[in-house]
C-alpha cells in the first residue's frame, strides 16, 4: 500500500515538475480544504479556524475546514490522502497521527515519513501535573517522594497511548518511580475523578486544570515544557527539578501538513503565509487563550519534530508494552 503510494508520489513529482511549475503560478484557483481530525469546538478545530480565516484572506480563496473526527485524528489524514495530492487538500492535525499512530494502529494505511509533506508547526502545549487540593505534596519532589512505593500513586490519562499517558510514563521513567495508570476518555473525566478523590493525579492540558486551581480545589505541581508556559506562568517547569534531566520536555502540538507530492512551491507559500499569521500578536493571544503557544517555523523544523518525537515516544511505548 505505502510502497504503491510512494512510487505514485514519486512518479507524480517527476511527471509533474514541468506542469506544476506553471500551475503554482495560478495557485490557488479554487477553495482550499483543511482536514481536521477532531470535531467542531475541539482545540485542534479551534486552532484550524483561527488560522483559516487570515489564511483565506492571504491567498484570496475560501479555506474550508472539514471536520473528519475519528481514531485520534487518523481518519482526517486518511481522507486527506484519499483525495490525492491535488494541491488543494491540506491538514491541520495533532502530533499523535504523525508520530505514535504507526506504533499503536496496525492498519494505519499511511506512513507519516513517506506520505506526508510537513508544512509547518502551528502551536504547542505542555501538560501540567495536577493533583487535588488536599494532596500531601506541593511540588515535584514531594510528588516523587509520595510515589516512592510502586503504584502507590494513581494518575488519569485520556487513554492508552495518548499524549497524557505517554508523558506520564516518560516522567515516571525519568523520576525512577512507578505510577498506577487509570485511563479515561477525556480531561473532563480525569478532572471529575481527581475532584472526587478517586484518583490522585493527572497529566492534563493546563486549560483543563486552570479553573479548578483558581477555585482552590486543585493544584498544579509542574509543567512539562522547557520554559514556563505563558498561560500558567507560576507553575515551575519540571526539567532539572527533583533529579529530572535538564532536557526533560514533553509537548503536544498542532501542525499544518499536506500530502507528499504536493507542489513544493505551494508548501513553501503555505508555510510563509502560516508564519505571517502566527507572528500576528492578535492570533498569538487567541491561541494562548485556548492554551496554545504559537510556534512559527520552517517545514524542516516540523520534519525534525516529527522524527524526534517519533523516536522519543517510540521508546516510551517500547517500555510500557514490555511492562505489560
Amino acid at each position: 500500500m505505502t510502497d504503491l503510494r510512494r512510487s505514485l508520489a514519486l512518479a507524480s513529482i517527476l511527471a509533474g515538475t514541468v506542469a506544476t511549475a506553471a500551475a503554482a503560478q495560478n495557485w490557488p484557483s479554487e477553495p482550499l480544504h483543511v482536514f481536521v481530525g477532531f470535531p467542531a469546538g475541539s482545540s485542534p478545530d479551534t486552532i484550524a479556524r483561527i488560522v483559516a480565516e487570515p489564511l483565506a484572506e492571504a491567498i484570496g480563496q475560501p479555506v474550508v475546514v472539514e471536520n473528519k473526527p475519528g481514531a485520534g485524528g487518523v481518519i482526517a489524514i486518511q481522507q486527506m490522502l484519499a483525495r490525492g495530492n491535488d494541491d488543494y487538500s491540506i491538514g491541520i492535525n495533532i502530533n499523535g497521527p504523525l508520530t505514535t499512530a504507526p506504533r499503536l494502529i496496525p492498519d494505519l494505511g499511511y506512513d507519516p515519513a513517506a506520505d506526508i509533506a510537513p508544512v509547518g508547526l502551528i502551536a504547542t502545549s505542555p501538560l501540567v501535573l495536577a493533583v487535588g487540593a488536599d494532596f500531601p505534596a506541593d511540588d515535584i519532589q514531594g510528588f516523587i517522594d509520595a510515589a516512592a512505593e510502586p503504584e502507590a500513586i494513581s494518575y488519569g490519562s485520556v487513554g492508552e497511548g495518548s499524549g497524557a499517558h505517554l508523558t506520564a510514563e516518560l516522567f515516571a521513567d525519568a523520576a525512577g518511580v512507578q505510577l498506577f495508570h487509570i485511563p479515561f476518555q477525556s480531561y473532563a473525566e480525569v478532572t471529575t475523578s481527581i475532584l472526587g478523590g478517586e484518583i490522585d493525579s493527572g497529566f492534563m492540558a493546563p486549560s483543563a486544570a486552570l479553573p479548578h486551581v483558581e477555585a482552590g480545589t486543585m493544584k498544579m505541581l509542574g509543567v512539562t515544557s522547557a520554559e514556563p508556559f505563558a498561560q500558567v506562568p507560576d507553575v515551575p517547569v519540571m526539567a532539572g527539578q527533583a533529579g529530572l534531566p535538564e532536557d526533560f520536555r514533553a509537548e503536544l502540538w498542532n501542525a499544518m501538513i499536506a500530502p507528499a507530492g504536493t507542489d513544493p512551491a505551494i508548501v513553501e507559500r503555505l508555510n510563509t503565509e502560516l508564519n505571517t499569521i502566527l507572528n500576528d500578536p492578535e492570533v498569538r493571544d487567541q491561541l494562548l487563550a485556548i492554551g496554545w503557544q504559537a510556534q512559527p517555523g520552517t517545514p524542516e523544523d516540523l520534519a525534525q519534530r516529527i522524527t524526534g518525537d517519533t523516536a522519543m515516544w517510540g521508546g516510551v511505548i517500547d517500555r510500557t508494552q514490555a511492562a505489560n
Binding site: G41, T192, L210
Partner: peptide
C-alpha cells in the same frame, strides 16, 4: 456540570464549552 464545573457530560456539551472558551469565558467553579 458544564457551567458549574467546566466538565461537559457529552460531545454536545463539549461543543458548548468550546463555544464559551472561544469567547474568553472559562466555565468552572467560578
Amino acid at each position: 456540570p458544564t457551567l458549574t464545573l467546566g466538565i461537559p457530560g457529552d460531545p454536545i456539551m463539549a461543543l458548548m464549552l468550546g463555544a464559551l472558551v472561544i469567547h474568553g469565558i472559562q466555565p468552572g467553579p467560578m
